[in-house]
Amino acid sequence: MTNEHIHSAFDTDLDGVQAEIMKMGGLVENAIRLGMKALETRDEDLAQQVRAADAEIDHLEETINERAARIIALRAPTAIDLRLILSVIKISSNLERIGDYAKNMAKRTVVLSNIAPISDSVGTLRRMTRAVEVMLKDALDAYIHRDAALAADVIARDVDVDQMYNALFRELLTFMMEDPRNITACLHLHFISKNTERMGDHVTSIAEQVIYLATGMKPDEARPKADKTSTARGF
């Protein structure tokens, strides 16, 4: 199959909306990385920047949805083109949510910078956000290259994020039991780590969209889950 439509303007439209997705993905990757850096270095200014940058991510989601609606109305896309438009709408919404979590991390960073730090919990959190960031990067690469195998790999890696979250959850619990003065900081760190775990779920959803886009089929296996803290006997 050639990739060019007979109507070249259709290709221009589709390329345009995909370029917006990649731009949005880049901004979200930045938000995660800079948000984590701000937390680690207790840099309030950087945290404020991350919070402010979320507006552009939100705005891009709007633009992408408008463009997608326009393509549906004017081009009546079918098959791969239809799946592309559906994936664009869903992925932009996933990216927007991930952006919100990064923004929330920056918001909590402002509070955390003004209270005593909690030993090395931030180290585990850094590994976790780093894992999510790489997953996101790979999911977007898989998207642009229609690479279902890479997308499946991203989905499989979400288990690691879930396990890191479990470990961190227990760690924070220990700190809180040791000294009640740690509770405020630990609760904020816990929310951040839970949000990061949720980011992993959104990245997984993006990877699932990539598989649907590339193959026309939903990923057949139920994806592995390892966040056990919400079930009674989880820890």
């Binding site: 990739n3 098959a79 791969i80």
Partner: peptide, 12 residues
């Protein structure tokens, strides 16, 4: 893939 090319308006 030939169906895909035709219904999406690509050159088959």
């Amino acid at each position: 893939p030939r169906t895909e090319s035709y219904i999406t308006g690509r050159i088959g």
